Amino acid sequence: MTTHRTGTRDEWRAARLALLAAEKEHTRRGDALAQQRAALPWVRVQRPYRFETEHGAASLPDLFAGRSQLLVYHFMFGPDYRAGCPSCSAIADGIDGAAVHLAHHDVTLMAVSRAPLAKLLAYRTRMGWRFPWASSHDNAFNFDFNVSFTEAQQRTGDLEYNYARDGHAMDMAPPPEPVAQFAASCGTDAATYTRDRPGLSAFVLEDGVVYHTYSTYARGLDGIWSMYQWLDRAPLGRNEAGVWWHRHDEYSEAS
């Protein structure tokens, strides 16, 4: 016996048409938000960041790879991690397919993390990804874009993430079980794990000058976490009771 409300086809159609109206309004609101996002003022990037890539040392303009727009996924992979964050890994599973199309629309899509390049490339090979991944191990890029923090900032609570200083789940003591669980899966402790955070930043290159145009963090990343876009359309929705996802090579054959 189903636990969900049932009805006739006519009842379903009436409810679906009501939902369609709400979905269309949501789409229109999303279009308006995209315009508002694009209208944000650009901020000139002043620091001369240097990254390590599989093709050698690179500046921030070099990361554009000849295009005028750059999207950076701030992948949680700190210098002391032994593996990348499982949540970031789930998001990254959707990058390769999109990156091919974006590259033909004047946009480079890539990941940047603080771990040394050798660790990043080894993990990329393990996961079967192809997208470009740069190491910011020796520069302040992650710190300047509010996705990495020092031990001193952790101790004093003097950090800002997702445009707020009023605390985040990652800053709770003791850490929530999912944070401790993910930290262990990355081969580190919760404090070390949470010194890096997920995010997405956008940049534009115009007349040789790089400008920062947008950044989003935390639940702002839902839109690029492709598995959730599918789950939101499945009969039971997200249907979550704690952490259920793993790196794609860690699921059992029975799953």
Rank of each mutant, 00 (worst) to 15 (best):
T192L: 05
D232K: 01
G220T: 01
A180K: 12
W225F: 10
T194E: 04
A183F: 01
D222R: 02
Y228A: 11
Y214T: 06
W230K: 12
A191I: 08
F182R: 15
D222A: 03
A183P: 01
A183C: 02
A202T: 03
P178C: 13
A234R: 12
Y211G: 06
P178D: 15
V204D: 15
A190D: 11
G187C: 02
A202F: 02
G208M: 12
G237D: 07
L200A: 10
Y217R: 07
W230H: 09
Y211Q: 15
A173K: 13
T192Y: 00
R233Y: 09
P198V: 06
W245N: 10
A234L: 14
F203S: 04
C186N: 10
D196K: 01
G237Y: 00
L236K: 15
Y217D: 13
Y211W: 10
P235W: 00
W230V: 14
G199F: 01
W245P: 06
F203I: 06
V209I: 13
L236W: 12
Y217P: 07
R197L: 08
E206K: 10
R219W: 04
Q181T: 14
H246V: 06
T216F: 03
Y228W: 11
V210L: 08
P235G: 05
G237N: 01
A184N: 05
F203K: 01
V179S: 08
L231C: 03
L200M: 15
W245T: 09
D189W: 00
A191G: 04
A202Q: 06
P175F: 01
S215D: 15
T188D: 09
A218E: 09
G199R: 02
D189E: 09
P235H: 01
M227I: 13
G242E: 12
A234F: 08
A190S: 09
A218D: 08
G223P: 13
N239V: 03
A173C: 06
A183L: 03
D196P: 00
M227G: 05
S215M: 12
S185Y: 03
P176A: 05
G223C: 14
F182E: 15
T216D: 12
D196Y: 00
T194C: 02
P198M: 11
G187Q: 08
A191K: 03
R219N: 13
S185C: 05
Y217V: 10
A190I: 06
S226G: 08
A218K: 03
R197E: 10
W225Y: 11
L200G: 08
R197Y: 04
Q181S: 14
L200W: 10
G237S: 03
P178T: 13
A183S: 01
A180M: 14
D207F: 00
A173E: 15
S201F: 00
E240V: 06
Y211M: 11
L221T: 00
D189L: 02
M227R: 14
L205C: 10
L200H: 08
D232L: 07
G187E: 12
D189Q: 00
W245G: 05
L231E: 09
